[in-house]
Amino acid sequence: MSLFMRGVIATVAVSGLVLLSACGGGDDGSGKRDIEGAKDGGGKPASASPSASASASGDPGAPKLDLPEGVHVVLDGDDMTGDPEKDEILRDHADAVNAMALAYSTGKPDVPVVHTYFQDDAGKQVQSRVKEYRAEGKLGTGTYRYYDRRVTVGKEAAAVTFCESQRDAFAKMVDTGKVVHTKPSKSDFTSGKAIMEKRGGTWVVISMAGKGGDEECAR
C-alpha cells in the first residue's frame, strides 16, 4: 500500500481521494484558498535546522534526508515544468515523499525533517499512522516510485497530483528483519493529491488523500 495511503486511511477501504494526497478534504470556508482539499489546521508551522548537505531534490538548503540501506525513492525527472514556482513546489514535494519514506523505514515520525514537510492534518496523520505501523512490528523497505506529478497553483495553496508505485516496496518485520514479499497486484498503484502551502520559504504538505488500486497509474 502506498506510503501516502498508509498515512491517510484508517478504517476506510481504498475508495478514492481521502485526506492527504489525491483529492483533499474540502475548503475551510474562509475563502482564502481556491485549491480543492486545502484547509487550515490551525497549528503553527514546524521547522527544522537546514543542512548544508544536498536533499533528495538536490536543494542544498533543504534538510538532509538519509534513507536506510535498501530504501529508495525514485521520482520521474520529466515532471519538471520549467516554471520556477511549480518546479520549486515539485522539489519540496520530492523532499516530502522522501521524509515520508524515512519515517516509515525507521519507525520514527518525530524527526525534524518529517515535521518540516508534513504539518496540520497531514502532520497528525503521518505521526499517527507511522506509530501504528511500527506498533505492528513493521518498517517500510524497498523502492517507492513517483511519477506523472502535476502542479496546480492557487492563491495561497498548491495541489500536487501524482501516481505512486509500490510494486517493489515491502514491509520488513522489526523482530526478525524478514522482508514480507507480496504478489504483484493493482493495489501496488496509487493516485494521490497533496495540498501544499509555502511556510518559511518551504512548501509543506498540509492535507493529502489517495486512491489505491488505481489502474490509471499502473505501469
Results as ranks from 00 to 15, higher is better:
residue 133 Y to N: 10
residue 39 K to T: 08
residue 23 C to N: 11
residue 31 G to W: 06
residue 81 T to Q: 04
residue 46 A to H: 13
residue 116 T to D: 11
residue 106 T to D: 11
residue 153 V to T: 13
residue 72 H to T: 12
residue 140 G to W: 07
residue 24 G to M: 10
residue 158 A to G: 12
residue 139 L to V: 08
residue 21 S to H: 09
residue 203 W to D: 08
residue 193 K to L: 13
residue 82 G to T: 01
residue 136 E to W: 07
residue 149 R to A: 15
residue 116 T to W: 04
residue 214 D to K: 07
residue 156 E to F: 00
residue 217 C to R: 06
residue 202 T to A: 05
residue 127 Q to A: 15
residue 197 E to S: 03
residue 125 Q to S: 14
residue 203 W to M: 04
residue 24 G to D: 08
residue 5 M to D: 12
residue 61 G to F: 02
residue 41 G to S: 10
residue 192 G to H: 06
residue 206 I to P: 02
residue 49 S to H: 05
residue 137 G to Q: 08
residue 50 P to A: 08
residue 116 T to L: 15
residue 86 K to N: 00
residue 201 G to Q: 07
residue 63 P to G: 05
residue 217 C to M: 09
residue 100 M to A: 13
residue 163 C to P: 05
residue 122 A to G: 13
residue 128 S to M: 15
residue 104 Y to D: 04
residue 27 D to V: 01
residue 116 T to A: 10
residue 163 C to I: 03
residue 200 G to L: 04
residue 185 S to N: 11
residue 216 E to P: 03
residue 202 T to N: 07
residue 176 T to V: 06
residue 212 G to Q: 10
residue 139 L to Q: 13
residue 136 E to C: 06
residue 197 E to H: 07
residue 172 K to G: 03
residue 59 D to W: 01
residue 168 D to K: 14
residue 52 A to K: 13
residue 195 I to A: 03
residue 91 R to N: 07
residue 177 G to E: 08
residue 204 V to N: 01
residue 108 K to Q: 15
residue 175 D to W: 03
residue 6 R to I: 04
residue 3 L to N: 13
residue 2 S to C: 13
residue 212 G to K: 03
residue 55 S to D: 09
residue 18 V to E: 09
residue 173 M to I: 12
residue 26 G to F: 04
residue 41 G to M: 10
residue 138 K to F: 11
residue 35 I to A: 06
residue 180 V to Q: 15
residue 153 V to W: 01
residue 117 Y to G: 06
residue 21 S to W: 03
residue 188 D to E: 05
residue 107 G to T: 08
residue 48 A to Y: 00
residue 106 T to G: 11
residue 90 L to H: 03
residue 25 G to R: 10
residue 5 M to G: 13
residue 135 A to F: 08
residue 135 A to E: 15
residue 130 V to Y: 07
residue 30 S to E: 07
residue 170 F to N: 10
residue 212 G to F: 03
residue 109 P to N: 09
residue 39 K to V: 03
residue 189 F to H: 10
residue 85 E to M: 02
residue 42 G to A: 09
residue 68 P to K: 04
residue 177 G to M: 07
residue 33 R to Q: 11
residue 71 V to E: 05
